[in-house]
């Protein structure tokens, strides 16, 4: 049986890019309503109290990361790609902090 080819560099890079893009551009993700235990996708008519997007956001980024890790070429300069992925990680941490700045300097 052939072993599954997976590139951790591509996974981390695409995960960070997808997570950052969805977060910054407020792209639609599945929402969870903890008060009623319901899930919805882009249905803004629901009025079930507070909605949580973190699960959907993480899940979407994970799916895209896994797809990239499996489908994109594994041997394409892994060391350079690793450094780029690391840079994307730091950039995403900075973007998240920037987007939440109103909590600290509101």
């Amino acid at each position: 049986m052939a072993s599954l080819r997976f590139s951790p560099q591509w996974f981390t890079l695409v995960f960070c890019l997808a997570y950052g893009a969805i977060l910054a551009l407020e792209l639609p993700v599945p929402g969870y309503y903890p008060l009623t235990g319901r899930w919805s996708f882009g249905d803004f008519s629901i009025v079930d109290g507070t909605v949580m997007h973190w699960y959907g956001l993480t899940f979407e980024a994970l799916i895209l990361g896994v797809l990239a890790g499996v489908l994109l070429p594994r041997r394409l300069a892994p060391r350079v790609l690793g450094l780029v992925a690391l840079g994307a990680t730091w950039a995403l941490m900075a973007v998240a902090a920037f987007l939440l700045r109103s909590y600290f300097w509101g």
């Binding site: 951790p8 981390t12 993480t58 939440l100």
Partner: peptide, 16 residues
């Protein structure tokens, strides 16, 4: 909120 986002970032970093 930042802890949740950075926690997800860590998840993305784990395979690398």
């Amino acid at each position: 909120e930042l802890k949740e986002h950075w926690g997800a970032v860590g998840l993305g970093l784990l395979p690398l």
